[in-house]
Design a protein around this nucleic acid. Structure first.
Lengths: 339, 339
DNA sequence: ACCCTATTTGTAAGCGCTTACATTCTAATT
DNA sequence: AATTAGAATGTAAGCGCTTACAAATAGGGT
């Protein structure tokens, strides 16, 4: 029958080891500063008591939490999951812990979560994309909170970004599509409001059209949220137009997978009747038939680099530096020349 | 030029509003208890100062964090991502925040993370599966930490589990395979060490074999970790045996997808030459060709129910109750009768 | 008017830790 | 043996909040 006893404290350890709390604290945080004999006595008290330091108290006293917060749109998206996993591995290697929340793509929720993470004493923050209310950045700056933005690279912004040039990458892909003879393009995009990745990818398509003397305003765009089914629906929609496109450029692989499946259901052959492209290069992209031509993004590397940049900002107090990562077009079978 | 000023405290708000800190605290935590006029004065001070409560201080004083910790093997796995997303939505609805760490399937890391989460003052914990060192459960019990296990349902355990009967579910699937005339079965399993899901699924196959007078010990089992490539390799391995199996039962969809792809690469037809089954019913399962016959698991519901159970334990101090969720076999084209 | 109860607000004691500063101890130098 | 620099340890003041308890104020019944 175990006694109802609350967790042992530093004080308990100190008493048991016959030293002061300061010494115990030093044993735990800066072992060099205490002589071996004492340290051993303290450590054995720690283990016999099963002592674990109380984090809240430590944070309060030290004004340092060794915690980094990350807010992602959703965990149900392989691209964030992968990048975040790498991010977490890197910060863990450096002695930090990760706090994640997901905002479900809702800006108000994201704002609340940012405040929560700050209140929890996060030493730094990882955010996805630059598109959010300026007051949030003001708040972060006023609090001197080291912050890094990932998945998007816009060097002009104050907040350093570790990511890739969504616009450029999509432009390159669209240029390739056009070079294959396609003139009737269409786009299926994620919701662009508050999402610079989605927004800039569409801009990229338009850039490529403009460069090749296709009127950018003629591009049919269907915006929808991140689900296979929505991609399918959008595709059906696009195909019901009188003038069918010959190439459908999707803002991400998930929507593209939906498009390809819908094509199959409608008896439309990909790429013979219509080409489809994706973006992200997640697993689904190479599993589906035909496999998707898409843009490969180095998610793991991005996560790692973002972690390094953020930790440097935290530890040196520097302003941080943006870093652009390369993307590359992966050619598979869902894109072919126009006929 | 903004002054370098640290975050405003309760005290600053109190002074600005001309009340005591106790009143401010009450305004924030229990607004009913303070009269409207005062409350408004306080609230306006809060907004003009841009006050955000300091979490560590609050946790320390209140001995309550409104935080729930979850430790999952990896975020790079759709099944955990999905269940966790639902879990987080539910606890958020009830005013709690989620702290996630991933252990990368490493027991030592998991143990450390459990201690970290406890030290951080988590009000409750979500763990995946029952297989871990008893001292961890002892620690949790000694600390009176409300804990729920998900993804596995084993009612005999002390820690309540919200999940499904992995053994039973796999047994049903294997029985179905056998009924289709297959006698030469083989299994590709996840690492069973420390993973009751993987372990019990294999047991389920053996149960079904035993019931149908097939010698359970004859089942070839290849254990490998959770990656498409590993599934492919395992499949190749299995097919190089002199006596090829006619049905390969995989411990999860990811391994099954690897198996199917490898079959294609080897010119082996699925299901004509060999049947393949999965487990989990993730998106990949219906996207691949042929789509996988697999076991559908209600991940979202499990996440939600686990959240409800855990919160009830936290708030009522009750011991908590296990809950079994139903799974169902989803028949698609990767499984057919033996020829 | 007066007393009593109920409501609202204030006072102050921690929560468990870190760390600046003070004190004690060790041992090398004179 | 006396002196003293330097290492090891101790003392105690917070960190920003909650909450038990005390005090003040308001309202209702006589």
């Amino acid at each position: 029958m175990s006694k109802l006893r609350s967790a042992p404290t530093l004080d308990d350890v100190a008493r048991k080891a016959g030293v002061s709390t300061a010494t115990v604290s030093r044993c735990l945080n800066d072992p060099e500063r205490v002589v071996t004999a004492t340290r051993e006595r303290v450590m054995s008290a720690v283990t016999t008591l099963g002592y674990t330091p109380n984090f809240a108290a430590r944070v309060m006293a030290a004004k340092r939490s060794f915690t980094i917060g990350a807010i992602i749109p959703t965990m149900e998206n392989a691209i964030f999951a992968r990048g975040l996993q790498a991010f977490q591995e890197e910060i863990h290697r450096q002695g930090y812990t990760l706090l994640v929340s997901s905002s479900a793509y809702r800006p108000e929720d994201e704002e609340e979560q940012i405040r929560t993470l700050v209140a929890r004493g996060a030493d730094g923050l990882l955010l996805i994309g630059h598109d959010r209310a300026p007051r949030i950045f003001d708040f972060l700056e006023q609090r001197k909170m080291p912050t890094v933005v990932a998945w998007s690279f816009i060097p002009e912004k104050d907040t350093p970004s570790i990511g890739f040039n969504n616009r450029q990458a999509m432009k390159a892909l669209a240029a390739k599509v056009i070079k294959l003879g396609h003139t009737r393009l269409a786009a299926i995009s994620g919701i662009r409001q508050g999402n610079d990745r989605a927004r800039l990818r569409i801009e990229g398509i338009k850039d490529a059209m403009e460069m090749n003397n296709l009127p950018p305003d003629s591009l049919p765009i269907i915006e929808t949220s991140y689900e296979i089914e929505n991609g399918a629906e959008a595709f059906a929609n696009l195909m019901s137009q009188t003038e069918r496109p010959t190439a459908v450029l999707c803002g991400n692989d998930v929507l593209a997978v939906g498009a390809v499946r819908q094509a199959q259901d409608m008896g439309i052959r990909v790429p013979d009747d219509v080409s489809v492209t994706g973006f992200d290069d997640i697993e689904l992209a190479r599993i589906i038939n035909p496999p998707l031509t898409t843009v490969h993004v180095p998610h793991r590397e991005m996560g790692r680099k973002a972690a390094q940049a953020l930790i440097e900002m935290i530890e040196t107090g520097s302003a941080g530096q943006s870093l652009e990562l390369p993307t590359e077009i992966v050619s598979r079978q869902s894109l072919d020349r126009a006929n």
